[in-house]
Design a protein around this nucleic acid. Sequence first.
DNA 1: TAATCTAACAACGA
DNA 2: CTCGTTGTTAGATT
Lengths: 268, 268
Amino acid sequence: MELPETIVLSQQMDKELVGKQVSHIEVSNPKCLNMPFEEFQKTVAGKQISSVKARGKWFFISLDTHMLLFNPGMGTDILYFTDSNYPEKYQIKIECENGTVVTFRVWWFCYLHLVKAEELEKHRMTATLGMTPFDEPFTLDCFAHLLHKKRGSIKSFLLDQKKVAGIGNFYIHDILFNAGIHPMRKISSLTDTEIEALYHSMRSLLSKSVKLGGSRYEKDFYGNYGGFDAKEHFKVGYNSECPVCHTKIQKIKTGSTSSYVCPQCQPL
Amino acid sequence: MELPETIVLSQQMDKELVGKQVSHIEVSNPKCLNMPFEEFQKTVAGKQISSVKARGKWFFISLDTHMLLFNPGMGTDILYFTDSNYPEKYQIKIECENGTVVTFRVWWFCYLHLVKAEELEKHRMTATLGMTPFDEPFTLDCFAHLLHKKRGSIKSFLLDQKKVAGIGNFYIHDILFNAGIHPMRKISSLTDTEIEALYHSMRSLLSKSVKLGGSRYEKDFYGNYGGFDAKEHFKVGYNSECPVCHTKIQKIKTGSTSSYVCPQCQPL
DNA sequence: TAATCTAACAACGA
DNA sequence: CTCGTTGTTAGATT
């Protein structure tokens, strides 16, 4: 789940959940919490949800005096039910008044952290998040400054949530392709023109996916898959031939992640 | 300069300097300070030295309300003079009452930091120092616990001042040889017997050097070289043949440092 | 399809 | 052969 999906989901969650009171909460794996379950349960129960927002890959759920922070990790869906027809399999379940149920189904890890509203800035994992590409102050100039004098590769920079929040190893392939930049390019070698192309590429691809309701591999709050399809909307990501120059797309190892690259359009 | 030398020097400095008042201080490279020179000079001048101690490779010089912290870096000597016959070349000079002069001659880089006594624990570089092998709580059991579940090589662990303070790339060779341990051995592969041998090896070699007044390559406070000679007192360090098995000693690259190893007595 | 933290390590600069 | 910072990588995590 990357920025388009968290944006879509958080808007739907905000629409459906704001004003509702949490009546009951279940957490099958308490290791994802930042406190003992007892304490967590006691603090959350009875609180009212006042807003749901996303920042990068984190959900920020306001509970009056507290903030509930959720990082979905990999392969997670968050589903909304208004009756008892919710699935049996889930790791986290939040029940609200009037039969509203939200289930969180996590493939591997997630974090569900609760902090006092006034201590939100002390929460390391979210306090160190960078801006998202849609944040108002994230201008081209701001992006260029973030890249200034940085030493590593552009791909690891973009995936680092402390630098820019919300990009993962799904949208990254075409963000780079559309800017004509190889994932292993050193940041210091990028021209102003390339940085500008990257800035626009990032924002336009992610907003296209938001408009389509997010990735077709992920469910929204109502269980519907998004309309952004890799084969259809990506040029190189998860594809086999470059639609621009018809070169065979390479799938290469880039550090710990894989990358789809057109060696012609994205020279190193 | 490693633990034996800082111990010897700090004892001599303590003996000669305690009770003396700093009258004047010169610092040729203000980049080694943690504040502007003006402020540094103003705070230090007139203060009385109440003790000099060493912790690992750092000197702790108590100045009543403040602590002066000195890390000698590489190739540094600290010399004591009671008249004006001090050398012309120095990077730092501390003058005290009655003609006492201390010069610090630094080959490359050093740190000279001044902190308020009550804010000593906020000084990152010294606050994160590990125990020295001679610290009271540094028992065999304590050492074994420090090694518990560590992943890297034993050499990089021992050189890490945050783990154990005071060992550098001079004494390390024979500390490992005397325990029969190759520098590149994974910590997780060490047996209890080897950990015990290493613990004793470390303490006995370092205390032998302290008794001899430190390394013959370094000067003490009075300008005299120590009595611990590499060729004479080391078995493998800076030597060419293993005195135990007569195998040719290897000089190998171990990460960023070099190591002297007997491949027979220290199998990998 | 896909994430995060930590420790260890290398390169670099002061 | 100093230390810190930055970035990379391997390992572990449920």
